[in-house]
């Protein structure tokens, strides 16, 4: 039985540390559901819809953190040739993509009852959508069917420019919108003052989503590291595996 458990231990991206982290993340997510959906009151203006923000706002924050990690990782890789940082950049870009999609979808769901439409050409929405496209561009380069060195080097250039691009896009979109209308739509939404249990629920949201982000990042990093090792060892091993599988079935 012990050998069985041991084997499981080796053949995965998990470790004792991530297991503890994972359990903590699960507990925090359960607490978030409890506070966000049950204990916290409905908002005076927004009603029940405010509960979407407990997952929406923290997701946006970790998405931005992921983007910064991508740019930092790409910069360190280009500067020091650090494989480790390159993998951090790749792993956090993929996770940032997941969270950016979540932000967009939950934001649209929040917008429907609040504004009456799923989408408005608001500065924040538009720049988040552009951020998703920029991330998809990075991932497309990183996953190119090309030589390892080619892939990582080119992706690092794209990743390095990710945050500057986001800043410029945000600035331009903000000017673009404010020329036509003041961004009043969000003023009675996120900006409204929150306190008591609602604030605490949002706080739980930050912790829970943050833990999930950390857990995902470690696992995704290890997966990327394994892929890297496999790349390095050449395709022969993988081909041999496939052959063995084919022969067995």
């Amino acid at each position: 039985m012990t050998t069985e458990a041991h084997r499981q231990d080796i053949d995965s991206t998990g470790s004792n540390g991530t297991r503890v982290l994972g359990i903590a993340a699960l507990i925090a997510m359960a607490a978030l559901a409890l506070f966000g959906l049950v204990l916290s009151p409905a908002d005076a203006n927004q009603g029940e819809v405010v509960r979407i923000l407990y997952v929406h706002v923290p997701s946006a924050t970790v998405a931005y953190i992921g983007c910064f990690l991508t740019t930092i990782g790409s910069a360190v890789y280009l500067w020091r040739r650090s494989r480790w940082w390159e993998l951090v950049a790749y792993a956090s870009a993929e996770i940032a993509t997941v969270f950016t999609s979540i932000v967009l979808v939950t934001g649209m769901i929040w917008g429907r009852p609040t504004w009456g439409v799923y989408w408005v050409w608001d500065a924040r929405l538009t720049s988040t959508a552009m951020l998703l496209l920029l991330l998809l561009g990075y991932l497309a380069v990183r996953r190119l069917p090309a030589d390892h060195e080619v892939r990582t080097r080119r992706a690092a250039i794209v990743g390095l420019l990710l945050v500057p691009n986001v800043i410029i896009v945000r600035q331009s979109v903000q000017w673009w919108r404010t020329l036509h209308q003041k961004p009043t739509l969000l003023a009675n939404g996120v900006g409204a003052k929150i306190e008591g249990l609602m604030l605490f629920s949002l706080f739980v949201g930050f912790i829970a989503i943050g833990l999930v982000f950390a857990w995902l990042l470690i696992h995704r990093f290890r997966l990327a590291w394994l892929e890297d090792q496999l790349d390095e060892a050449g395709l022969d091993v993988a081909i041999a595996e496939r052959r063995a599988e084919g022969a067995a079935s």
Partner: peptide, 27 residues
């Protein structure tokens, strides 16, 4: 919104773990 968030995070986590399991046998 909550189903989408929990669902997509769980799905992504499961996919990452599964791929990690299958690929780590080769390393």
């Amino acid at each position: 919104a909550w189903v989408i968030v929990f669902g997509s995070l769980a799905g992504y986590a499961a996919r990452t773990i599964r791929r990690g399991r299958s690929i780590s046998t080769q390393v």
